[in-house]
């Protein structure tokens, strides 16, 4: 072989090696983080940890029951608001590809998707916290619903767009009314895509902290009143992690592991739904 060609092949191999090395390196910090959270968190998690309230500074032990319930409630109400609006919005966009309103709405959804989460918190502070003159779980849910909305709209639109037009035509040609064709044929056929978009969106907002800082605010006590401040897992982690007390750090590690597991679980469910519920055409 000529030395020139040898040089070129060598360069090619070298490049490939670099690519493989860098790609593999990327997984290192991820697994360091997962490992560290698991190591620090696992020793703190037990039944006591899940059902008790945090103890005041200086006392060891305590749990995160208020944050767990708070997170579930805040995320639940956020989903309750975002899912119907998001799915209907996605239906509108997939059904009206070229209308002026559709283009503007699509732009609006893109804007929302690019909005930093902290800014959402600011706006909801003025929409809900100030008028009610109290921080509240409800305002936190609205903020998270706004974070969720673009993901649900987009995934619904993309899913429904890919369904063959013949499906809709078959329904309409039977004399079925439009809403039945959409809700009973088109939506069920795109079910896996729509549902995985929703779960992904829930996973996204479950870990959000910034929009809750000025809305749900956090609460060291147990509360299920959505018109009052409420604790949530990410808020608890943030507040306790940045505190100077070791006992609180311990709680935060445990909470971090729970949050991580919950987000991972949602992501895995997303994967499974996309794979299993594919409808054959």
């Amino acid at each position: 072989m000529k030395p020139h060609i040898k040089y070129r092949l060598g360069k090619s191999k070298f490049f490939k090696a670099i690519v493989i090395l860098l790609s593999t390196l990327c997984t290192v910090p991820l697994f360091l983080i997962l490992f560290y959270i698991l190591r620090e968190g696992i020793t703190r998690i037990n039944w006591h940890f899940l059902v008790n309230l945090p103890k005041p500074v200086g006392e060891a032990g305590g749990g995160i029951a208020n944050a767990l319930v708070g997170s579930l409630l805040i995320v639940f109400f956020a989903a309750l608001m975002a899912i119907p609006v998001g799915v209907m919005g996605g239906i509108y966009l997939s059904e009206n590809k070229k209308s002026r309103l559709a283009n503007l709405t699509r732009l609006a959804v893109d804007v929302l998707q690019g909005t930093p989460s902290i800014v959402v918190g600011i706006v909801i502070y003025f929409w809900i916290v100030k008028p009610l003159s109290t921080f509240s779980a409800l305002s936190g849910s609205v903020a998270l619903a706004i974070m969720m909305l673009p993901i649900v709209v987009r995934s619904t639109e993309e899913t429904l767009k890919l369904l063959p037009a013949s499906l809709k035509e078959a329904g309409l040609a039977l004399g079925l009314p439009y809403q039945r064709v959409i809700l009973r044929i088109v939506l069920p056929c795109g079910f896996s895509g729509v549902i995985s978009g929703i779960i992904l969106a829930v996973a996204r907002i479950a870990g959000e902290t910034a929009p809750l800082l000025f809305t749900a605010f956090g609460n060291p006590f147990f509360s299920t009143n959505i018109f009052k401040p409420m604790q949530s897992l990410p808020l608890l982690i943030f507040n306790y992690a940045t505190s100077p007390y070791d006992e609180w750090h311990d709680l935060a590690w445990g909470a971090a592991l729970i949050l991580l597991l919950w987000v991972l679980l949602l992501n895995i469910i997303t994967k499974i739904t996309t794979r299993r519920w594919k409808i054959q055409f």
Binding site: S166, E169, A170, G175, I185, P188, C189, Q280, F281
Partner: peptide, 21 residues
């Protein structure tokens, strides 16, 4: 209304399109 029209006039398409769900 198109719904009545389509009750009275049925249609079969080029490609078979049974509802997959």
């Amino acid at each position: 209304h198109p719904i009545f029209v389509r009750h009275k006039i049925g249609m079969v398409f080029q490609r078979p399109n049974p509802f997959p769900n």
